[in-house]
Write a protein that binds this DNA or RNA. Structure first.
Lengths: 199, 199
DNA sequence: GAATGATGTTACCGATCAGTAACATCGCTT
DNA sequence: AAGCGATGTTACTGATCGGTAACATCATTC
């Protein structure tokens, strides 16, 4: 039995990939505390010992989960921005147009970082440190775009848009249906950007 | 020993009050899943059996926790509004001025409803139903004030302010320090209200 | 003062959690 | 073919979870 017969030894670093995929989906959908390692290995189709031979602990998986979410987040943001390579104002606007669409699809669970921060309340917890870092970078990126767009007070516009972005994420989870407020998102962004650019 | 000597039988419905106070503080500070009933009874200074003779389950405590948070929330909102009995625009503005102050004090843990929604991901869970109801009422109240203020599109203003409020709550937990964005909150509210009232 | 009902105390249940020891089994190298 | 390291499998640990049974103790009423 050396050909394509059913064999059980298939994993290598592939187990690692499967585990990360499973953790990705389950942590985001059900929360980190609510998902046990048994659920993860079951979803990944690997053995529990394979998990602990690839990762030292559940926290290690959580750390990787954050990194993936971070990458995905920036990919989405930069994709919106890239639609307007030489129009920073339009790029800023595009972020909120796209977000309004993403946030109302069924099964959407909001900002993974905010969800993580809600689960780990200790400010010194490494998850909260990572989240704070992500938000700092986001604010910096918004300010950068605001500057490029020619805002008279780039930081003020960035802060306003940051608040709006957090609000859109949070509202997608607290309002039912989320459309009740999210339909207004692109227009609010337009107003804030418009106000900051006039003069 | 009938006078004011130390005795251990003091509880009646008072145990109930002590338990609710303890649940209030611990649930908000550490999260619901993270707080066990043992921690609650210890903080309340009562016996575990006293808990289960007053409440049928932990979920029952959670339900009461929500009701308290709901009452406290509306008290804060209406107190802001009441500062301007015959000026709805100023009342709306006041909500955000006050919130900006509340949200930056140390130990602030953001919107208890959003935190609850983050912990219980199942949309049909009773906690999420309660949260959605709270948010619906909030949006309605904002729209009411927007109408009184003379906004040409009261719902649009209410939606914008609702997004902003959610954003302020969320940012208080995801940004470190939260002041990095929350200092802009009153000004953003002023801009949105101003835009909606001109014409 | 005896009975009654509410309370305090302890010890426990079954379930679930993250993490591990021990051993069988595989693929690969020599 | 022998050996070796990585993997799969099972069974387990100790801790913690929400919740409860059993019994001692108290205040009150008759």
């Amino acid at each position: 039995m050396s050909a394509t017969t059913t064999r059980r030894v298939t994993e290598g670093p592939e187990a690692s990939a499967r585990l990360l995929d499973a953790a990705d989906e389950l942590f985001y959908r059900d929360g980190i505390r609510a998902v046990g390692v048994d659920a993860i290995v079951k979803q990944a189709g690997v053995n529990k010992m394979s998990l602990y031979r690839q990762f030292s602990s559940k926290d290690e998986l959580v750390r990787h989960y954050f990194l993936r979410a971070d990458t995905r987040f920036w990919t989405a943001i930069e994709r919106s921005i890239a639609k307007h390579p030489d129009n920073a104002a339009a790029a800023l606007q595009q972020i909120y147009t796209d977000l309004a669409q993403r946030a109302v699809v069924a099964g959407y669970r909001g900002c993974p970082f905010v969800n993580m921060a809600a689960e780990f309340t200790e400010p010194s917890h490494f998850v909260r440190q990572l989240v704070a870092q992500n938000k700092r970078q986001l604010l910096a990126r918004l300010e950068e775009l605001a500057t490029q767009a020619g805002a008279s007070q780039p930081l003020a516009l960035a802060q306003a848009l940051a608040l709006l972005l957090e609000g859109a994420y949070a509202a997608s989870q607290s309002y039912d249906p989320p459309d009740a407020v999210l339909t207004a998102l692109p227009e609010v962004a337009r107003q804030l950007i418009g106000l900051a650019l006039q003069h």
